[in-house]
């Protein structure tokens, strides 16, 4: 189960750019739209399966493909301290 770290804030800049900010370290990450929407959904309490299903519908691709992509993105975000993995 992935969760957005409580030390992370997501923001859109005035120019539409998407950002994740770590309040504990000051690091900031510019995100693409899909990564931003994925983390925003996580912050709303969605789980990775429902996020993958939503993305599959939005982009017209299989859930199997988006599940792999979401897992990969969230694993990277865990490494960057943006997301925590809870068993």
């Amino acid at each position: 189960m992935f969760r957005l770290s409580p030390q992370v804030r997501l923001r859109r800049g005035p120019d539409g750019s998407c950002w994740a900010f770590r309040l504990d370290s000051g690091e900031h990450y510019e995100l693409n739209e899909t990564a931003y929407e994925t983390l925003a959904a996580l912050a709303r309490g969605d789980d990775q399966v429902s996020i993958a299903h939503h993305l599959a519908g939005e982009y017209g691709i299989t859930s199997g493909r988006t599940e792999v992509d979401v897992e990969e993105l969230l694993t990277t975000c865990v490494d960057e301290g943006l997301v925590t993995r809870e068993e």
Binding site: R11, P14, D24
Partner: peptide, 20 residues
């Protein structure tokens, strides 16, 4: 609060950053 929370989490600062 520390500077990171102030700089990244202030609604006022986000509002003023947008010239719109």
């Amino acid at each position: 609060e520390g500077l990171f929370k102030i700089w990244y989490d202030s609604e006022f600062l986000w509002k003023v950053r947008d010239p719109g």
